[in-house]
C-alpha cells in the first residue's frame, strides 16, 4: 500500500529528477550522432572563447552577493531582534520581506526603472554617482554589483525573517547571564548570537551559492533591454542556452548544464550529509 502512496511522486522524481540528469550525462559524453565522444564536448565548451568570461562574470557576482548577504543579513537580523518595540520590529521584518514577492522577471523589470536615470526615483543619487543615462549604468563592469543588488533586494528579507526566528530560539537566560556579566549588545551579538546562527548562515550561503551559479533571467532581460550592450552569453546558463538554441548543439549545452549540475549536486550533497540541518530520520 505504501507503494501506492509514493507511486505518483516516484514517477515525477524519475521523470524530472533522475532521467533528465542521466540523459544530460549521455548527451554530454556523445557526439551529435550518438557515438561516444569522451570528454570532447567538455573541452569544446571550456575552450570556447565565451566560457571563461562567463565563469568570471558569475564568480564576481557571487562574491559580491554572498559577502553582502552574509554580512548584512546577520547585521539586520540582530538589530531587528534587538528592537524592543514590538510593532516596530514586526514592521521592519515585513518591509524587508515584502520584496520577496517580486521574483524573477518582475524584480528585474522594476530595477530597470530604478537604474534608468531618466525615470528613476533615485535619479539624484544616480547623477551624483556620475550616471546620466541607462547605458552608462549598465556597462559590463557595473553588472556584477547591479545583479547583486537585485538579488539582495528580493532575497534578503526572507533570510532576515528566518535568522530572526533562529535568534528567538536562543534561550533568554543565556543572553541575560551575559548582560549581568557586563557584556555590551555588540559583545552579545559577536560572542553569542552570531556563533549560534552559524548553521543558518552556512545554510543561507550554500543555498545562495548554488542558486547564484544559475544566473540567467537578470542578464537575459538586461541584454534585451540594452539592445545587446549586455551580451546574451553573459552567464553560464545563457551560454548553455545559446548552445542549445542558436547553435543546435545539444551535446555542448548538456556539457555546460552538467558542469553546473555537478556543482549544485555537490553543494547540496555536502550539506545534506555534513550540515546536520536536515532530518533524514
Amino acid at each position: 500500500m505504501s507503494y501506492g502512496f509514493v507511486a505518483p511522486y516516484t514517477a515525477l522524481v524519475i521523470a524530472f529528477g533522475v532521467l533528465p540528469a542521466l540523459y544530460a550525462v549521455f548527451l554530454a559524453f556523445t557526439d551529435n550522432e550518438g557515438g561516444f565522444a569522451g570528454i570532447a564536448n567538455f573541452t569544446k565548451v571550456v575552450s570556447d572563447f565565451r566560457f571563461l568570461p562567463a565563469v568570471a562574470h558569475v564568480a564576481l557576482y557571487l562574491v559580491i552577493w554572498l559577502v553582502a548577504l552574509v554580512v548584512l543579513v546577520s547585521f539586520l537580523a540582530v538589530v531587528v531582534h534587538a528592537v524592543r518595540v514590538r510593532w516596530l520590529s514586526r514592521t521592519l521584518r515585513f518591509v524587508f520581506y515584502l520584496p520577496g514577492a517580486l521574483a524573477g522577471a518582475s524584480s528585474v523589470l522594476l530595477w530597470l526603472f530604478v537604474l534608468d536615470p531618466t525615470a528613476s526615483p533615485v535619479s539624484g543619487l544616480l547623477h551624483l554617482l556620475g550616471f546620466s543615462s541607462f547605458v552608462q549604468v549598465i556597462v559590463p563592469a557595473n553588472l556584477p554589483p547591479v545583479f547583486a543588488i537585485i538579488a539582495f533586494w528580493t532575497g534578503a528579507g526572507g533570510w532576515i525573517v528566518i535568522m530572526y526566528g533562529a535568534l528567538n530560539n536562543i534561550s533568554p537566560d543565556v543572553i541575560e547571564a551575559a548582560r549581568i556579566d557586563g557584556a555590551t549588545a555588540v559583545q552579545i551579538a559577536r560572542r553569542i548570537q552570531l556563533p549560534m546562527l552559524r548553521k543558518w548562515i552556512s545554510y543561507m550561503g550554500i543555498m545562495s551559492l548554488a542558486a547564484g551559479t544559475q544566473l540567467f533571467v537578470e542578464p537575459q532581460l538586461l541584454s534585451q533591454a540594452s539592445n545587446a550592450i549586455v551580451p546574451n552569453d553573459y552567464s553560464l546558463n545563457q551560454l548553455a542556452y545559446q548552445y542549445a538554441f542558436q547553435q543546435n548543439d545539444f551535446n555542448g549545452a548538456a556539457a555546460i548544464s552538467l558542469l553546473l549540475l555537478v556543482i549544485a549536486l555537490a553543494l547540496s550533497a555536502v550539506f545534506v550529509t555534513r550540515g546536520g540541518l536536515f532530518e533524514k530520520d
Binding site: 509514493v6 516516484t10 522524481v13 524530472f16 529528477g17 533522475v18 532521467l19 533528465p20 540528469a21 540523459y23 544530460a24 548527451l27 550554500i206 543555498m207 548554488a210 542558486a211 551559479t213 544559475q214 540567467f216 546558463n237 548553455a240 542556452y241 542549445a244 545539444f250 549545452a253 548538456a254 548544464s257 552538467l258 553546473l260 549540475l261 549544485a264 549536486l265 553543494l267 547540496s268 550533497a269 550539506f271 545534506v272 536536515f278 533524514k280 530520520d281
Partner: peptide
C-alpha cells in the same frame, strides 16, 4: 533512498535541471 534523493534534489536550484528536462 527516496528520502535522501528528495533531500538532494530539493536543495539543487530548480533551474539546474531545466535544460536537461528540455532535452528529454
Amino acid at each position: 533512498l527516496l528520502l535522501v534523493l528528495t533531500l538532494i534534489v530539493m536543495l539543487i536550484p530548480n533551474t539546474a535541471l531545466v535544460l536537461p528536462i528540455f532535452l528529454e
